[in-house]
Design a protein around this nucleic acid. Structure first.
Lengths: 126, 126
DNA sequence: CTAACGTACAACCAAATGGTTGTAGAAACA
DNA sequence: TGTTTCTACAACCATTTGGTTGTACGTTAG
């Protein structure tokens, strides 16, 4: 499928998590270096609880994971999810570029026709 | 520079627009074939006004554009924006993959012309 | 001309979002 | 020990979101 192994809900959570500058910045920070939640919180102008919520949103999207270390919760990135999101966007672009026919074949699940390009299916109303 | 010309607000809007399955489906449809808003609306189980709002969200994110044709409003995709979003995600992955040095240089002074994604509030490394 | 269609937009509503403060518990430190 | 630090979570609030319905207006078809 065009959505790989991701469900719609998972994609929703990923893009929603990335639709906030603070959360994107958190992702960037922990990509660069794993940090505790309180260390992250000190970097922003909002309360600790607010940062905690941002981290929770990123965690629900599987963009980061937390690992307890003593009394601290260490946040580190989960690049696999980011990669899947990037690949999803790339697939849209591939569809837009010339590969539309092949993608259509995949989506339509019929590979018998060897015709390479033409507008075959008009309305795939799901 | 390699840097995109996207502001934080624009990135917010792009990812927010993509964080909804109906809107992603609209993007897919109009990538495949340009369609009027009412044609799109017939494909979903919600009201015409709801689809109109979804289209407006996508338009605000510059993922699609509308073009009047008689009494119809034809929706077509704007792949450039999608490409910029995909490249942004890939930059995160490049950062993770080890090309950190160049990204670090970018991130260190990200408030100037870069506008790729600047930290929302406080300084980067206090 | 009249009717139907496609669109725009306002008003309204329930639920989610993003923020706050406050309280409480577990771990580290003096 | 007692205190500070880090985390978790509840309660609350304002704003946004995603949906509805209703109305109005331009355009096309009969």
């Amino acid at each position: 499928m065009v959505v790989e192994t991701l469900t719609n809900d998972e994609i929703d959570r990923i893009f929603h998590a990335l639709a906030d500058a603070t959360r994107r910045d958190i992702v960037q920070r922990v990509i660069h270096e794993e940090q505790s939640v309180s260390t992250l919180a000190r970097a922003y102008d909002v309360s600790f609880a607010a940062v905690q919520k941002h981290v929770a949103v990123l965690e629900r999207a599987h963009l980061i994971t937390k690992q307890r270390h003593g009394r601290e919760q260490i946040v580190h990135s989960d690049m696999g999810t980011l990669g899947r999101a990037e690949r999803l966007l790339r697939q849209y672009q591939d569809l837009w570029a010339g590969r539309a026919s092949r993608m259509d074949a995949l989506l339509a699940e019929d590979d018998e026709t060897t015709t390479q390009n033409d507008p075959p299916s008009k309305g795939p109303t799901p």
